[in-house]
Design a protein around this nucleic acid. Sequence first.
DNA 1: ATTTAGGGTGTAACCGGTTACAGATGAGGT
DNA 2: ACCTCATCTGTAACCGGTTACACCCTAAAT
Lengths: 322, 322
Amino acid sequence: MTTIKDVANYANVSVATVSRVLNNKGYISKTAEEAVLKAIKELDYRPNSVARSLYHKTSNMIGLLMPDITNPFFPELARAVEDVAMSYGYTVVFCNTDEEMEKEKTYFEALKQKYVDGMILTTSNMDSTKYDEFDIPLVALDRIISERIPTVVSENKKGAMEATQHLIERDCKYIAHLRGPVGVRPADDRYNGFIEIAEKEGIGYVTADTQFSIELAEEKTLELFQSHPEIDGIFASSDVTAAGAMHALFKLNKQVPQDVKIVGFDGIPLGTMLVPSLTTIQQSIYKMGEKATQLLIDQIEQKAIDTYYHEFPTSLVVRHTT
Amino acid sequence: MTTIKDVANYANVSVATVSRVLNNKGYISKTAEEAVLKAIKELDYRPNSVARSLYHKTSNMIGLLMPDITNPFFPELARAVEDVAMSYGYTVVFCNTDEEMEKEKTYFEALKQKYVDGMILTTSNMDSTKYDEFDIPLVALDRIISERIPTVVSENKKGAMEATQHLIERDCKYIAHLRGPVGVRPADDRYNGFIEIAEKEGIGYVTADTQFSIELAEEKTLELFQSHPEIDGIFASSDVTAAGAMHALFKLNKQVPQDVKIVGFDGIPLGTMLVPSLTTIQQSIYKMGEKATQLLIDQIEQKAIDTYYHEFPTSLVVRHTT
DNA sequence: ATTTAGGGTGTAACCGGTTACAGATGAGGT
DNA sequence: ACCTCATCTGTAACCGGTTACACCCTAAAT
């Protein structure tokens, strides 16, 4: 491996001069610069970024912590993060936490030891004060952790209200809500939005707790219909959950949208692949990923951050399940 | 940040002794060891892995190059890679190349500058000899690049044959194959497997070229039915493509599986979410990711690699589209 | 009493960069 | 002629670890 010393020797200058050329810093004579550039070219030299990191305590890497890339909501987010990061010369290290606090801690430690410049969190299982202790730039994405951490989320409550309203406009009389994980703010907000409209419109409703798993959603839907056969509308907390509900309806021999109408939440590609395709509340997933990454890089590069809380609008996309 | 020097001072020993304790190397007295361990604990010391890397000339990172994490085939692969990597103390940098040679080159350079220890390739758009030039451990996953690079793929041809046979057993008389990208070996192998069985069984068939996009698959399916309304079976080169075909059939008002039967390829979760759920050729996606990562780490750690070519069995999973 | 050998420890060089600092040179101002 | 200052360059310390080597100590062997 060619080192800066090799280049210095070859160009008959000191390592300091080579470093100056590399970083365009300080005074360099034309002669020296040319000699160095020639040496770099002929020796095919690339600076060792580990050595650089050691000195600068910086790695040009950012960490992306998410529950599970296998959950179809995250690939698009990850994609956006990576696109923006790369355009600024950062690389992305990605970590699946499975919502386990232990894993989260392990990754935090591992990444800190590698001098990652910052982290994007789409998962938060440690005590919220813990995050402030790590003195490393953070951004919360699709989660709300603490007001000290810049945050990017959707207008979850508003979206949920719109979804519920839509089902009512489509003549649903008794609506079930498949609620997301209790305690996760976006899911709670959707729940609250649903309740608010259902109460306001004085319509019949039930709710059931689910996670983001298709199997559980199917199971819960079957249970709901056992106790409430009059359900004619479902608002699912995520598109994956909606897919689970559709399976249950298939088993129950209910026609979608004739017998039961369904609205999901997320707007992931899965929705368009389902047959019939899924009416859903579209989040600006890619844009949220972009914004979060931008916010992180701004912090890393010490730029002032104007707003700490960013809410992205959602939109109702009517497809074939309503 | 606490350094090894702080620990040494606190424990009243030299940095060498601390390092020996950390790495369990050389002679250490019980007294010294205890003092060091106590210091480490009380100062909450973690060795700086960048400094370690500098000495050991490794970054403990591996690169994962894939076309697009947004394509539902890749998250599971990525997940497996990350799981195994992390269990060996490696972190994963992920890169989306969009099958563009330029991007691939850029990432290769960027990662080499960061001295990643190795890379897993699920995409290959450079000249195959180019890869040999980079003297860095590589593994080809779901791609075949060169026999000098350890390779992990599915039994694509065999799987395709099984899929075709299955459609014939289900009484299909005229089968369409939605072929994957020409020139990509796994896709070509599936095509060849299909042709071989179709010819052998003397059944009617057509093929159409697609990519891994749902829209294109839908479009091509519509075209196929226009020219060949007698099609009663479809073997799609991927599950995403199969989903596209299902959309087309929905538009054409054809019942699945009554009028047309469909078999996909991949076994991604999407298949179970579709209604009706998709019969498919299941690849051991996770296991392939594990194996590839293991092969990469073996190379990095200079272990001998017994076999360079690994084929994973596929299996027919019969669900509701056949 | 003197070797000998193994246990235990610290010093300093090293990994490959960056940069503070000091010294050298030469042009321009007084 | 002397001073000032900008330009240019090299030496060496530093980032935070690892380890070769030298040295000391003690107990067993001769």
